[in-house]
Design a protein around this nucleic acid. Structure first.
Lengths: 124, 124
DNA sequence: GTAAGAATTGACACCGGTGTCAGGTTCAAC
DNA sequence: GTTGAACCTGACACCGGTGTCAATTCTTAC
């Protein structure tokens, strides 16, 4: 499929899809004229990339990580090197902390919202 | 207390503490010479500010939100306006989505780590 | 008084994914 | 062929919390 369709299917801008390619996150065949031609599994990959970005990982970490992820690209998945495993473990801890922060902030927001709506804030 | 001590106690840089003041997130008395003099509750407030930042809120939203949060600043808490409640509800939804993303990414990381360590990936 | 450490303001820079514009090329339908 | 939509590359800018440096001033202990 072409970049326009992929953008439409994933909700990710064409700009970003091209950027992912420069970062080694997403590859595409080319038509004789130079237009990108994506395989079907690109949709899943783009969604996964977005999830990783949302989780706070940077392009280079995602680039290392993607080959090790079992997904629908049809290829065999690589085994993470010990160094990468160390990095990912660090990321995992960061993600844990972030989840904790998010849960706490969500509670606070709920309390403020509940108070403003005249409901008694859930006991705390 | 002085800015240096507050920075040490919270783990937040002096630079950031001064920035928070410019954003209306944190106030301090001043000594006759102009040095900031923070009350004890500033520690809790700074930690809360950091949590909100970590949750993806911007300075201006936090500035609106803080007066409505019941915390240790000794003051009575304000009631959020309907407009603010709307904004906070939107933020709450964003936070929910982000938590979902983080949980999913964490699972993927766990699988990659487990595979690399020769453990069978937790069934999925 | 004086010296050393701490605090002040102001300015500049960074990161890094994304938006956007410009100027040119390709594709597909007629 | 021609035409209009889609695509190409390259460049510039943004955001916004934080790091850092500079030049100056305040505080405190001697």
């Amino acid at each position: 499929m072409r970049i326009g369709e992929l953008a439409r299917l994933t909700g990710v801008s064409e700009r970003s899809l091209r950027y992912y390619e420069t970062q080694g996150l997403l590859t595409a065949d080319r038509t004789p004229g130079g237009h990108r031609d994506y395989a079907d599994w690109a949709v899943d990959r783009v969604i996964r990339i977005q999830e990783f970005y949302a989780a706070g990982l940077g392009s280079s970490k995602i680039a290392e990580l993607l080959p090790c992820v079992r997904d629908a690209d049809g290829g065999p998945s690589a085994i993470a090197t010990p160094r990468l495993v160390g990095d990912l473990t660090t990321e995992r801890e960061r993600i844990d902390r972030q989840i904790t922060d998010l849960l706490r902030s969500r509670e606070v927001l709920d309390e403020v919202i509940a108070t403003a709506e005249g409901r008694p804030p859930a006991d705390g």
